[in-house]
Design a protein around this nucleic acid. Structure first.
Lengths: 223, 223
DNA sequence: ACAAAAGTGTTTTCTATACACCCATGG
DNA sequence: CCATGGGTGTATAGAAAACACTTTTGT
């Protein structure tokens, strides 16, 4: 019986993206799969995730943005032998990383979530659960900022929420509520995106977030 | 590397209870611990939970009331060898079961959660997380009925919420909101608990619950 | 008659929602 | 001057919260 980890690494670039690798070895050689692999004797589950992610895709992310979501233990989920896999979600800004498929993966690539290919093993099931959890988390906690660059437009926040949750938001109400929490601070800079009035660049205010969290204030961002 | 499961089995009898076993073997021989044990090659994680629970405590519960909460994988969490443990929550009405400590456990006993003894391994950490999750779930879903007998008083529901969440509720508002959901049906029977006006016995209406769930109606039971 | 628990409505406050026009820029 | 996206306020409806007295029984 072996233990593996799998990671659903979400990125955001106009739409929600996931990072997949093409398997270099059997089983499912040549097919797309979630990054992941076996846990070594002397490393924690999170260390295994970060190591495999780096080996398979070149992405080096911070431990703090990893979140365990579920452990998949069906008897026959791996055709070789009994493998129990602990699944994690990670959130990154994809523009921060250059992908390199070196050790165990033939290729690593970002896919739009809605256009993701067929996946090896039970990875589609893992992905489906990860997406649900991401949606759930997004509503209660401003995790979206892990997906955005340091400075961003309010309209990007709006698009991110709409695209991850598959809903339409009232711009005025969303803005009022979100800015009302005080989690965003203006950088003072404005950028012009080609057309239209230039927009304010915002920055996530982590201190306010931690303060709100400490006071156990409910961060529910949508009704 | 081995995989185990551990279960935090909650019961409710005036206050929140947990089922613990006294360990028969080393390590931590003679100390209290959560029921659980190693997963066999040809059984699912949930099957392992139910098997161990039955072997160690005599409790035979339904698979549907088991919920996986987290997988604990710290390198040194078991002094013998590397053991990764998948933790589950279960909810039962403790009056339904007779405890028998036969195979692997020297003793099995319900404890009030607030008076639980020191636990072996990292089981206190597992218990703390389980309690948090239970509180979280209770607010969004009427899981409390798994803890109560088939017929119960409304005041028992009220006490259950207050005792699990450590809050005080306004009786009138809570009753209004809860009964307004239509999840409870009157049995027509009234019982007198010694003192005071006899109270209506209610029954959980599972069909209404499933209907509400299907319609994706928000079951948030507290603000 | 009194102690003890059950049962019940109304008012106020807050939050969510619906909704439409002006602003700043580039072409 | 017009097309494009950015930015703003108010009115209404619904939900949550605050709040106290009456009912039914056992002793």
């Amino acid at each position: 019986m072996r233990i593996s980890v799998d990671i659903v690494l979400f990125g955001y670039r106009k739409s929600l993206q996931i990072l997949l690798i093409r398997r270099k070895f059997e089983p499912f050689k040549g097919e797309w799969a979630l990054p992941g692999g076996f846990v070594l004797e002397d490393e924690s589950l999170e260390q295994a995730v970060l190591r495999e992610l780096k080996e398979e895709t070149g992405v080096e992310m911070a431990l703090s943005r990893l979140e365990q979501i579920y452990t998949f233990g069906a008897v026959d989920r791996d055709p070789r032998e009994r493998v129990i896999s602990v699944a994690y979600i990670g959130l990154v800004n994809p523009d921060k990383f250059q992908l390199l498929a070196d050790t165990d993966a033939a290729d690593a690539q970002w896919f739009e979530l809605v256009e993701s290919p067929q996946l090896a093993f039970d990875h589609q099931e893992i992905l489906d659960l990860a997406q649900k959890r991401l949606q759930g988390r997004l509503v209660y906690s401003p995790i979206g900022f892990d997906l955005l660059p340091e400075k961003f437009l309010f309209s990007e926040v709006e698009d991110l929420y709409q695209s991850i949750l598959n809903i339409e938001l009232d711009r005025r109400n969303f803005r009022k509520k979100f800015l009302g929490l005080g989690l965003l601070e203006e950088t003072g800079e404005r950028v012009s995106e080609g057309k239209g009035r230039p927009a304010m660049l915002y920055r996530f205010n982590k201190k306010v977030y931690e303060q709100l969290e400490k006071e156990k204030i409910n961060l529910q961002l949508l009704g």
